[in-house]
Every structure is written in C-alpha cells, then in structure tokens.
C-alpha cells in the first residue's frame, strides 16, 4: 500500500516550512541580542575558563 502522491507532496511542503519554524526561536533570540547589544555566550566562555583554570590550579 503506497502513500498517495498528493500526501507525499504536502508532507514535503510542510516539512520545509517546519525547518523554518524550528529555526524561528533561535533567529528571534539572535535578533534580540543584536538589538540589545548583548553577547551572553561570551559570559559563558569566561565562566568556563574560570572553571578550567580552577581545575588546573587544583591539579
């Protein structure tokens, strides 16, 4: 039993739109950061560095 061609076509069309929806919150987030001039991922890098430095010190 095969899936009707029209169903397969609709699935593909909707799947492409879904990729955009998956990306939407990430795009919105980076637009917000750009407007606010924030770079929170850099803060995380600093924090990680501090932790790794701490580990080195401990060793």
């Amino acid at each position: 039993m095969k899936t009707p061609k029209s169903t397969v076509q609709k699935i593909f069309r909707n799947a492409i739109l879904s990729l955009f929806i998956y990306a939407l919150p990430v795009i919105l987030m980076f637009i917000t950061f750009y407007i606010k001039g924030e770079k929170p991922w850099l803060k995380k890098d600093t924090k990680q560095q501090t932790i790794s430095q701490q580990k080195q010190k401990d060793q």
Binding site: I21, P25, V26, L28, M29, P40, K44
Partner: peptide, 15 residues
C-alpha cells in the same frame, strides 16, 4: 546553558 530562560523554553517547546 547561556541561553536566557524565555528563549530556552521557546526552543524546547517548539523542538
């Protein structure tokens, strides 16, 4: 883990 709560919740909810 640096992602703010609101966007984290939105990403999880959609994904």
């Amino acid at each position: 883990s640096w992602i703010p709560f609101t966007f984290g919740a939105l990403i999880i909810a959609i994904a």
